[in-house]
């Protein structure tokens, strides 16, 4: 056995001072990083489901300009979903790509938050959902641009510009409709009443979220909560609306326990690949 250098007192000091990263028994390089897979699914599914919802407006919006802006947001979101889901598939290492993940999972395996699967309702309800989600997504992506996972950081860096526009556009509509006519104000208020109960889920730090944050891949959502609420409150006040009172949080989306709406959305979205499983398109 070769002689080893002794561990000196100064090494011990250095060791005490260093609070290192990493873990014992970390997954070996060839084992799939399942928590990264799940984390990427969450990001991808949020964008996919909201993109699918917004696209339902195409051809039916209040004006041509609004039609263009809704389709534009849907297109951004489908693009983000494509990146995140392809990445999730690659991380998982079982040969599934973004299309496999989008079109061949059932409700229990979808990881999006409940907010994005909510029905469009009227234009005010759509804008309330968009504003509550995009404000959160913008803050999250800002954070994720510094993710230790290069791919997550790269997609977030591209998407944060898009999402920042979604936040701005939806905030403007919230204000315009809230402070517009009596009717639009009531509809906008109803839109918030419908969607507000799904906001706590956005900040829920379950085990996976905590792990992702600890590894520097994901964000610690608890530190974003206050700023989020302040932002939302200021827009809602300018819109002359009132925030609904808080209720017992409804969680579950991140674990595959969804609302009744998601199944119907998937029926539409997945119909072709499921009816013709041998076909490519």
């Amino acid at each position: 056995m070769p002689s080893l250098p002794p561990i000196r007192p100064e090494d011990e000091v250095r060791a005490r001072e260093r609070r290192g990263t990493g873990a014992f028994d970390a997954p070996a390089a060839d084992e799939p990083d399942l928590s990264l897979f799940e984390y990427a699914l969450r990001l991808g599914d949020d964008s996919l489901i909201l993109g699918q919802r917004l696209a339902e407006w195409t051809g039916h919006a209040p004006s041509v300009e609004v039609d263009l802006s809704l389709a534009n947001m849907a297109l951004d979101l489908v693009g983000q979903a494509t990146h995140f889901l392809n990445y999730a598939g690659a991380v998982e290492g079982r040969g599934r790509d973004g299309d496999q993940l989008a079109f061949h999972r059932d409700v229990l395996d979808f990881r999006n938050c409940l907010l994005v699967e909510q029905p469009n309702g009227d234009f005010a309800q759509t804008m309330a959902r968009q504003f509550l989600f995009s404000t959160w997504q913008k803050m999250l992506f800002d954070h994720l641009t510094r993710s230790k996972d290069e791919m997550v950081a790269a997609v977030a860096a591209k998407a944060v510009k898009e999402v920042s526009y979604h936040e701005e556009l939806s905030a403007e509509w919230v204000i315009r409709l809230g402070d517009g006519t009596e009717e639009s104000r009531q509809r906008m208020q109803d839109g918030f009443d419908w969607n507000w109960r799904f906001v706590p889920e956005l900040f829920d730090m379950d085990e996976l979220a905590r792990e992702a944050a600890m590894r520097g891949i994901g964000a610690d959502l608890t530190i974003l909560r206050d700023v989020y609420h302040a932002k939302v409150r200021s827009v809602v006040e300018e819109a002359t609306l009132v925030l609904p009172s808080d209720q017992r949080p409804i969680l579950g989306g991140r674990r595959g326990h969804h609302s009744e709406h998601l199944g119907h959305l998937l029926c539409v979205m997945q119909f072709l690949p499921r009816t013709y499983p041998d076909a490519t398109w």
């Binding site: 996919l48 993109g51 699918q52 696209a55 339902e56 195409t58 051809g59 389709a71 849907a74 297109l75 489908v78 693009g79 979903a81 494509t82 889901l85 973004g98 299309d99 989008a102 079109f103 539409v268 979205m269 119909f271 072709l272 690949p273 076909a279 398109w281």
Partner: peptide, 16 residues
Amino acid sequence: GRAPSLRRKAILLAKV
């Protein structure tokens, strides 16, 4: 809503 792949969905959205 029923485009059969993510790519087809994005293309069709952009086209419309």
